[in-house]
């Protein structure tokens, strides 16, 4: 054990950091794009009925493909990983934003219009707050997936915790596999829990019971 840490400690720390960096950047970019697109789609429900299923089909493309294709066109740079992961992070958040907003019950929207709110005010004061728990569960999904797919960064030699797993699998070194897998698992679980906590924090008391299940 001690031998392992003295040999790989520094490297492991760096890998954790790189991995986390990929996840953080990609999810942030993905979240912003997805939120905007989700809101946009919710404004044009007619077209969204066609667009959303198409997006769902694209969602079946595994992350490895994004990374692979971008690798071929952009090359072995961190941007490749970040773009691929960002694209992948978009889908769950986009879908949940759209669904969350569309599922805001009509009476609330009608009451808001009746109160004289503008479209923008209805969005920011009623629709988004009510949809927020749904949006955040999309964020959780994206984050967990991204931690998972970020392992693939190592496939094109760009570090992260995947490097340990790859090397371990390649050389039949179980310690290396575990050394990569355990921190990745912990990272996913911790980020999941963190987002659960954030979700609780930002969900107003009036909406909580509804989503307790």
């Amino acid at each position: 054990m001690q031998y392992f840490f003295s040999t790989y400690g520094q490297m492991l720390l760096k890998a954790v950091f790189t991995h986390f960096y990929y996840v953080l950047i990609s999810v942030s970019i993905g979240f912003c794009i997805a939120l905007l697109l989700g809101i946009l789609l919710s404004r044009i429900p007619k077209y969204s009925k066609i667009i959303i299923p198409i997006i769902s089909i694209f969602q079946t493309i595994p992350g490895i493909v994004f990374i692979g294709i971008l690798f071929i066109y952009i090359g072995m740079v961190p941007t490749t990983v970040i773009i691929a992961l960002s694209i992948y992070a978009i889908f769950p958040i986009l879908k949940n934003t759209y669904v969350g907003i569309c599922e805001v019950p009509e009476p609330y929207k009608e009451a808001a219009r009746g109160c004289g709110m503008s479209q923008f005010q209805i969005l920011t004061r009623v629709e988004l707050p009510i949809a927020l728990p749904t949006i955040i569960s999309g964020l959780r999904m994206s984050t967990v997936y991204t931690v998972s797919w970020a392992v693939l960064a190592a496939m094109i030699g760009l570090g992260g915790l995947g490097e340990f797993i790859y090397r371990g699998v390649g050389t039949n070194n179980n310690i290396l596999i575990i050394a990569g897998a355990i921190p990745a698992a912990i990272m996913a679980i911790c980020l999941g829990l963190l987002i659960d906590y954030v979700q609780k924090l930002v969900t107003p008391r009036g909406l909580r019971e509804e989503n307790s299940k």
Binding site: V144, S148, I165, I177, I178, G180, A181, A184
Partner: peptide, 21 residues
């Protein structure tokens, strides 16, 4: 819930440690 949170490759790696590839 935790099982699904685990990165797929990490999960497969750990299983591989026990029963091979």
């Amino acid at each position: 819930d935790i099982l699904q949170t685990l990165p797929a490759l990490a999960l497969l790696g750990v299983i591989m440690v026990f029963i091979g590839g």
